[in-house]
Simulated assay, not measured.
Amino acid sequence: MHRIRHLPANRPASAAPALVAVAHGSRDPRTPQAVAALLDRVRELRPGLDVRLGHIELNAPLLPDALDALGAREAVLVPLLLGRGHHVKHDIPASVAAAPAL
């Protein structure tokens, strides 16, 4: 499991890392709507937090594209996956390793 360093409470919002929710992706057309509703709720609870989405497969944006869009900005990745399988152990770390400067 990756450790995430604690950020001071007095850190300016503009310097806070983005939150990137990592969803699997699905062929079910209801899934993107459910994920969007969840992220909207997070945005509601944490105004000013840059909340983004990256999918492992099947739906856009794909995780590598979401990470590329951040440029050199820091991010905290939150897997929205049911288990700690191949995607968590391999796909997510590989996408992070290939990102510009995360």
Results as ranks from 00 to 15, higher is better:
Ser14Val: 14
Ala16Met: 10
Ala21Trp: 00
Ala37Phe: 02
Arg43Gly: 14
Asp68Val: 06
His87Asp: 12
Ser14Lys: 03
Arg46Cys: 14
Leu53Tyr: 03
His2Ser: 14
His87Gly: 00
Asp68Met: 04
His2Tyr: 07
Ala72Pro: 09
Ala75Cys: 14
Pro93Glu: 07
Ser95Lys: 01
Thr31Phe: 07
Ala97Met: 02
Ala97Gly: 00
Ala36His: 10
His2Ile: 15
Leu81Ala: 05
Leu82Gly: 15
Val20Asn: 06
Asp40Arg: 15
Pro64Glu: 05
Ala37Met: 08
Gln33Trp: 09
Val22Phe: 05
Ala13Met: 07
Leu39Asp: 00
Val22Cys: 06
Pro64Arg: 06
Gly25Tyr: 04
Asn59Val: 11
Asp65Ser: 11
Pro61Ser: 06
Val20Trp: 02
Asp40Ala: 15
Ala18Phe: 04
Pro12Ser: 10
Ala98Gln: 07
Ile56Ala: 10
Val78Leu: 15
Leu77Cys: 08
His55Thr: 14
Ala60Trp: 05
Ala99Phe: 01
Arg30Gln: 13
His86Tyr: 15
Pro100Met: 05
Val78Cys: 12
Asp40Leu: 08
Gly25Cys: 10
Ile4Ala: 14
Leu38Val: 09
Ala13Trp: 03
Ala99Leu: 01
Glu57Phe: 04
Asp28Thr: 12
Leu62Pro: 00
Thr31Met: 05
Val51Gly: 05
Asp91Tyr: 12
Ala75Ser: 13
Ala37Arg: 15
Leu58Phe: 15
Ala34Val: 12
Arg3Ala: 13
Thr31Tyr: 11
Leu7Arg: 11
Arg27Ala: 13
Leu39Arg: 01
Arg73Gly: 10
Ser26Pro: 09
Pro17Tyr: 00
Asp50Ser: 12
Pro61Arg: 05
Gly54Gln: 02
Ile4Gly: 14
Ala72Val: 08
Ile56Met: 12
Leu62Lys: 07
Leu77Arg: 04
Ala37Pro: 10
Val76Ser: 01
Pro47His: 03
Leu19Phe: 12
Arg3Ile: 01
Asp68Leu: 09
Ser26Glu: 05
Pro8Trp: 03
Val42Asn: 07
Ala60Gln: 12
Ala99Ile: 00
Leu102Trp: 08
Ser95Arg: 04
Leu45Cys: 02
Ala72Gly: 14
Met1Cys: 11
Leu39Ala: 05
Lys89Met: 07
Arg3Val: 04
Gly48Leu: 03
Leu70Tyr: 08
Ala16Phe: 01
Leu53Thr: 03
Leu70Gly: 06
Leu49Lys: 01
Ile92Ala: 09
Arg52Asp: 11
Leu82Val: 15
Ala66Gly: 00
Arg5His: 13
Ala18Cys: 03
Val96Met: 14
Ala23Ser: 07
Arg84Val: 15
Arg43Thr: 01
Gly54Met: 01
Leu102Lys: 10
Ala69Trp: 05
Arg5Met: 13
Glu74Gln: 13
Arg52Lys: 11
Gly54Ala: 02
Asp65Ala: 13
Val42Ala: 08
Leu70Trp: 09
Ala16Arg: 08
Leu58Ile: 15
Pro79Val: 02
Val96Phe: 09
Ala21Arg: 04
Arg30Val: 00
Pro32His: 10
Asp40Gly: 12
Lys89Leu: 15
Ala97Tyr: 01
Ala72Ile: 09
Ala13Ser: 13
Gln33Glu: 15
His55Leu: 06
Leu58Ser: 03
Leu82Glu: 11
Asp50Ala: 15
Arg73Asn: 10
Arg11Tyr: 03
Arg84Asn: 14
Pro79Asp: 04
Pro17His: 04
